Computed example of a mutant assay.
Amino acid sequence: MRMSKGVEWALHTLINLDVIGGGPMHSGRLAEAHGLSPSYLTKQLQQLAQAGLVSSVSGPHGGFRLARALEDITLLDVVEAIEGDVKAFHCTEIRCEGKIGALSPPPTRTCAVHAAMRRAEDAWRQALAAQTLAGIRADLNVTPAAARLVRKALD
């Protein structure tokens, strides 16, 4: 499965917002800090806002801020916010098509390929749901010096 760059951008942005105390931070500054397209990152932030992961603050010191603690945000939350919750595999019942389909009796069970792919995708989604952004931030081991660098990059 291939995910868009937006998932990576969203994950780093959420963690950076946490590093600076939750926000708010203007999307342009967040984009500039990583050399990203401001319009594309704003789109990701709007999708995160629709999913309730960030909120928008208006005004001269506004921007986006975390709407939930990193402990309450999973990788699955972010993937679904950016990519949607559409299943990756779509069975088209190819087993019923062409000469094989014409010569075979109609199926009475779920397609075994479909069932196997669904099990694999369900396991992937469960693994994403089990990983919080707080765990990722802990793995990053953001030292006070590193946090200062992130704040400086966002100034």
Rank of each mutant, 00 (worst) to 15 (best):
R2I: 09
M3D: 13
K5M: 14
V7S: 09
E8F: 10
A10V: 00
A10R: 00
A10T: 00
L11F: 06
H12G: 07
T13V: 02
T13I: 01
T13H: 09
L14R: 08
I15N: 08
I15M: 10
D18W: 15
D18V: 13
D18R: 10
I20T: 11
G21D: 07
G22Q: 12
G22W: 03
M25L: 14
M25V: 15
H26Q: 14
G28L: 05
E32V: 07
G35T: 05
P38M: 09
P38K: 13
P38S: 13
S39Y: 03
T42W: 07
Q44M: 12
Q47V: 00
L48H: 06
Q50H: 07
Q50K: 14
G52V: 02
G52N: 01
L53M: 11
V54R: 03
V54W: 06
V54F: 03
V54N: 02
V57K: 05
V57W: 02
S58G: 11
S58H: 09
G59T: 02
P60S: 09
H61L: 11
G63H: 10
R65P: 01
R65K: 09
L66N: 05
A69G: 15
L70P: 04
D72H: 14
D72F: 09
I73S: 02
I73V: 14
T74C: 03
L75C: 06
L76D: 09
L76K: 07
D77Q: 06
D77G: 00
V78T: 15
V79E: 11
E80R: 11
A81E: 09
A81N: 03
E83D: 13
G84Q: 13
D85S: 15
V86I: 13
V86R: 15
K87G: 00
A88Q: 12
A88N: 09
H90P: 02
H90Q: 13
C91P: 01
C96A: 06
G101D: 05
G101Y: 12
G101L: 07
G101Q: 02
L103D: 13
S104F: 00
P105Q: 11
P105L: 06
P105C: 03
P106H: 02
P107H: 01
R109H: 12
R109Q: 15
T110E: 14
A112C: 04
H114K: 13
A115Y: 08
A116E: 04
A116F: 01
M117Y: 15
R118M: 01
W124S: 10
Q126R: 14
A127F: 10
A130D: 04
A130R: 10
A130P: 10
Q131M: 10
T132E: 09
L133Y: 10
L133T: 04
I136N: 01
I136S: 01
R137D: 10
A138R: 15
D139A: 15
L140V: 05
L140D: 08
N141I: 10
P144K: 08
P144W: 12
A146W: 04
A146F: 03
A147D: 07
V150C: 04
V150P: 00
R151C: 05
R151L: 09
A153K: 08
A153P: 01
L154T: 03
